[in-house]
Simulated scan of single mutants.
Amino acid sequence: MPAPPTPSRALAVQRLLTEHCSAPVTVDGWQPLEPWTVARFQVEGAGAARTAIAKWVRPGTGRTARRESWRPAAECAALRFLAEDAETRLAPRVIAFDPAAGLLVLEDLAPRVALDTLLARDGAAAHAERLTAFARALGRLGAVTAGRADAYRSRRATLGPVDREAADTQPFADHRQEGARWATVLGVPPGARVSAELTRADAVLSEPGPFLALSNGDAEANNLLVHASGPADAPLIDFEAARFTHALADAVCLYLPGPGWLSVGDPVASGLAGRHRHALAQGVPQAEDDRLFGFGLAAACLSWALIRLRRFPALDARARGDESRSQLVATLEAAARTASNHSSLPHLAGWADRIAATLRSRWPDADQDFTDPVRFPPYRRRG
């Protein structure tokens, strides 16, 4: 039986690698990793036989297509930027890049798997060491890139035009404002003191000062690769939305439920908060200042909670018992709790709690104790 034809994308990768290596290269075993525009393949030639990963631009039209066209360049720039530090292995290495085609070839980090896959399968308790590696990796990313924004932007500029939105330190600011508008619709408008604290939070997130650091733009457990057993090294992946922003924006996932979770447990009691903060302080000594750290973290967490609130109309239309409602309530309350624990932004935290209470009243199915470690264990995936 003849072998199936080689996909056109694989042929494009083969041409790119042949040009890159200045020697014949063969691409085989093309394996799409759906639903992403990613594939794993085998490469032979140029004195090596190995597997590698290819990524390319998502299809789209109009503004969406223009925005997507910048993603491969952003990821390439970020990964090459990180590779400048030979001792830091926080992410995969770039093998080759074709800016015109938006085609990126990366080293394959298999047999590692995404951390969230293990958490969903086994729960957090079974992977405490890997969660610690996750917290440490996020802190190290901030530590090794803080103060280097100009160097990154210079490297990024060599790969073509930069999407202004993608370079923004606050890419979701409009979403946060939309969330605040829905709070008003719910009958919980921000008063003068809340508005004043919103302005202060916005200022520190827009101008992070010494906390300005590189983020992959999606700091969640699905973007950390770990060994299912054995070494606990943990490279980060998916830098398509890479940007310099407030380093503590990447810490939000340790304190608040992300899109896939109802609960993240207590990061202080588990030690994750301390591991992250210690790693970050190696390059951002201001992270040891309780006031600066607490304010930045509270601002980042409450900002994310408001961003999630923009989903209110969609969730309100869903059937009773939809767990996305519970996730939104849990997110608002976790953000308020984090701010209170750090004695920061008390009026903003109180507002988040009032919004959550209003949603509990509106959605009786979401009126539950999300801090209950038995009913809602850490990293319980939504149905």
Rank of each mutant, 00 (worst) to 15 (best):
R360Y: 02
R93A: 08
A120F: 07
L17Q: 05
N216M: 04
E107C: 03
P378K: 02
L280V: 01
W351C: 04
P373S: 13
H20K: 09
A65E: 00
E197M: 05
V144F: 13
V38K: 11
F41M: 12
H347K: 07
A305V: 14
P2A: 07
Q282Y: 04
A366D: 02
A299H: 14
E333R: 11
G160S: 01
T117P: 00
T358F: 05
D202Y: 04
F211P: 10
L103H: 00
G62S: 00
A110H: 06
I355H: 03
G260A: 14
V162D: 03
F81G: 06
Y379E: 11
S344H: 00
A228C: 02
D367H: 08
E19H: 12
A251M: 09
V27H: 05
T18A: 05
Y255P: 08
D116Y: 07
D163P: 00
L332W: 01
A10I: 06
T169S: 14
H342A: 10
F370G: 09
L103T: 00
S326L: 15
A23L: 04
L280N: 06
A196K: 11
C21E: 14
R243E: 09
N341Q: 15
L328C: 06
A100H: 04
R308M: 15
A247D: 14
F370R: 01
D365P: 12
G191S: 04
A3D: 12
V204F: 13
A23F: 03
S22M: 13
A299E: 13
E107W: 01
A334G: 02
L315C: 10
A251C: 10
S326F: 07
T169W: 05
F211I: 05
A143E: 07
P235H: 04
P190A: 14
E87G: 15
W261V: 11
G294P: 05
D116K: 07
S263D: 15
G321K: 03
V144D: 12
R164P: 09
A23V: 09
R153V: 02
H246L: 10
L297Q: 15
D116Q: 06
A110K: 02
S8L: 15
R362P: 13
I307T: 10
D116R: 08
T145D: 12
R375S: 12
L79V: 08
G187H: 07
R362N: 11
F211T: 12
C21K: 08
D108F: 03
A299D: 12
T26V: 14
M1D: 04
R176E: 09
Q327R: 15
L359G: 00
E288P: 01
E333P: 00
R243G: 09
L106K: 02
A192T: 14
A143Q: 11
V27E: 06
S303M: 08
V226E: 03
E34S: 09
P208Y: 15
V162E: 10
F211Y: 14
A305Q: 10
G296P: 12
P111C: 13
P92M: 02
T199W: 09
P4Y: 05
D233I: 06
G123W: 07
G350V: 10
Q42V: 12
W70R: 14
H20G: 06
W261L: 10
